[in-house]
Amino acid sequence: MKQTIFTIKHNVALTANVYEMALVGDTEGIASGQFVNIKIDGLYLRRPISVCDYSEDTLTLVYKVVGKGTEEMAKMVSGQKLDVLTGLGNGYDTAKSGSQPLLIGGGVGVPPMYALAKQLIEEGKKVNVILGFNSSDEIFYKNQFEALGAYVTVTTVDGSFGVKGFVTDALKNTGGYSYIYTCGPEVMLKAVYNAGETSGQYSFEERMGCGFGACMGCTCKTKYGNKRICKDGPVLEKEEIIW
């Protein structure tokens, strides 16, 4: 964990309620699948947001406005400074991916898949991605994933774009996979858990107090014992999950 003051480079809307915020500052120690915890003026608890992308000096977050914290974030402008705790959570382990990993992101679970896809492609793996949305106007980052060289399938619940249905309805379109990485709403994770034919890593979310393992505010039970989603997660192995 590290505390860093970042400067907002841009904060732009990607859809009606999903925003992309680029932050300039020290990104050392940040990994895919981790999250950062942001201090927001006027609110007491920091707000945990998953890492979408990072480079040597820029951290990119893609977040959906769902409550007070993200409402405040959406109003922020370039040049503003943010107090951020980085390097939080375990992140994804790419050593287990095999040669053809499948990445499944649902809605606001899409962003963490981006840095992971980038990393897996750099490691020479053939990456298939399924991005699930409710409808075509909610789609974001499809082009960004394609630009990385990933094979992208989009699903929409209303059928307005791509495969009609849920992410699990596109599993057969992927032409086989060696491992699954996924992030999204819990009902989606459970559907992937049941339909997925390989092992995998599942990223969970929970209301947090500190975000770095001190308060025990986000503990869940797993087959490997009690785990703090913030410190021992947010990524759990398929084999340890208890629904």
Binding site: L43, Y44, L45, K68, E206, R207, M208, G209, C215, M216, G217, C218, T219, C220, N226
Partner: peptide
């Protein structure tokens, strides 16, 4: 869980002695 909630200038917790 949830064991945590935001409040004005503070927070609620109900960890329950884990």
């Amino acid at each position: 869980t949830p064991r945590i909630a935001e409040c004005s200038s503070g927070m609620l917790n109900a960890v329950g002695l884990q």
